[in-house]
Simulated assay, not measured.
Amino acid sequence: MSSLLDKIKPMSIGQERLINALKDSRNEIVGVFGPTGTGKSLISCAYGISSVLSGAYKRFIIARPVVDVSTGKPLTPEELGELYYKVASAYLEDILEGYMGKDEISKLLQEGKVLVTDVSYLRGRTFDDSLIFLDDAQSTQPENAAEILMRIGRNSRLIIAGDPVLQRPMGVEKDGATLLREVLLNEENSVVVDLGLKDIVRPGARRGVKVAFELRMRKRELSNSEKQVLDLVRIHAPDADVVTVVEFKQEKENLGIKSENVPDVLIVAKEGHLGRVVGKGGERIKAIEGESNFRIRTVEMNLDFKEWIRSLHPIGWIKKHIVDVDFAGPELLVTVKRDSFGAFVGQRGSYIRLIDRVFRRLINVGIRAMESEG
């Protein structure tokens, strides 16, 4: 008889790595991090329920914060009463829709084989023969997760999942998911699986990610120089929808970058509006450059981050030597061909440092680079 996990066929290399990591009993702790829609919760819950039904563990405990979306405040069972458990149970039904019936889920909950609760339930307890799943770790205090680690008893394992990019609380540099990932990377008998854009399989999730980044950029506070450029765009390209403008001339000079191929300003246009900003023969962007005294590049608002990097980098052919750009935890990881790595990062890392600073200002995500192994 096939298990619930066997019904889920991995749809990306990252998902396959996650399933293999969960099946490997040597991994006492499995951390999985990535944007929404990558299957973190689905695969973890399917593995947990399969493990309980097979007798590998007596209980599957799902600990997750219930957060008020308007305030960002975690809500507790004491505050919500019976409603808390209805919300928590509905979460499990939504995740497993199409894979497991509501009656089957209710039976497991009633029998106590599956428990959905908040993180505070785990404090001061020791769990034997249990599989514990800490979901939405970005909304959890890292200290709470550390206490959970201390409570793992005999024949018990821990799964931690979180989104350290899109669901990270605003104004927080290192959320719970980011800090836990850093700890687990060098923790004995633990494994970290990073899922990225290529692992998004849920219908509509990729569009949602793009919209989330666009909203983040539209909310940016513009400097006076950025407002000046935006005003000029409105004069010379009134039919263009511009998401944001970022100016970094001083940062470029501070890093000692003198190349004329590196712009001073990047204009991010709504998808389908790039041509309207530039003009048929480039006359619009030339007029904006002439009146602002800035070197300007434009890029379209999409998830092709290779193109974003190309627009900021002084070497025109560098895009051909970028193997991959995708999320690895809270950052974008750029994989570059080994023979072009030095040209990509620049002298004393000046190019990658500039790109990192611009990306942080645009979408609050940093950049790091590594050489391709191939």
Rank of each mutant, 00 (worst) to 15 (best):
K337M: 06
I288E: 03
N261P: 06
L222T: 09
V336T: 03
L80I: 04
G204P: 02
E93H: 09
R168M: 05
V242W: 05
T38G: 08
P238Y: 05
E188M: 11
E260F: 12
I296D: 08
V30Q: 04
Y85T: 12
A145V: 11
K227F: 07
R234Q: 06
V209K: 07
E251V: 00
E182Y: 12
G98P: 08
L158D: 13
N27V: 02
E214S: 13
E16H: 10
I367F: 00
G342C: 00
E147T: 06
P238K: 09
V192Y: 02
V365F: 02
I105P: 07
V172K: 05
E111W: 07
S223W: 11
S190Y: 06
K198N: 12
I8E: 00
E373V: 15
G55I: 00
S225Q: 15
N293K: 12
K270S: 04
R284C: 01
T126M: 07
K102R: 15
Q250C: 01
E271Q: 13
V268D: 03
M370P: 06
D129V: 14
K249Y: 13
R348D: 12
D128T: 09
D356E: 06
L108F: 15
I318S: 00
I132K: 07
F341C: 00
L134I: 15
V277M: 04
I159Y: 12
G329W: 03
D231V: 02
V242E: 02
I29R: 04
D6H: 09
S156K: 03
G37M: 00
G98K: 04
P314Y: 14
I367W: 00
E253C: 02
A240H: 04
L274P: 04
V268G: 03
L185K: 10
Y57V: 13
S41M: 09
R202D: 02
I105N: 04
D68M: 13
L180E: 03
Y85S: 13
D324E: 11
A56H: 02
E187T: 14
H321D: 14
T71L: 10
L122M: 10
M150F: 12
K86M: 08
K9Q: 06
K320L: 13
I235D: 13
A212W: 15
V114Q: 01
I235L: 14
L222W: 11
K286H: 14
D135C: 01
R338W: 06
I367N: 02
H321I: 04
K319R: 06
P77K: 11
R123F: 03
V211G: 03
D128K: 09
S156C: 04
G112P: 07
V30P: 07
M217G: 01
D68P: 10
S44F: 10
L122K: 07
D129E: 15
E143C: 05
I322F: 01
Q15M: 05
Y99S: 00
K107C: 08
K319L: 01
V277A: 05
R154P: 03
D163I: 08
P10W: 02
I200R: 12
E188W: 10
A343T: 14
I148K: 06
V201K: 07
N186Q: 08
H236D: 04
M11A: 09
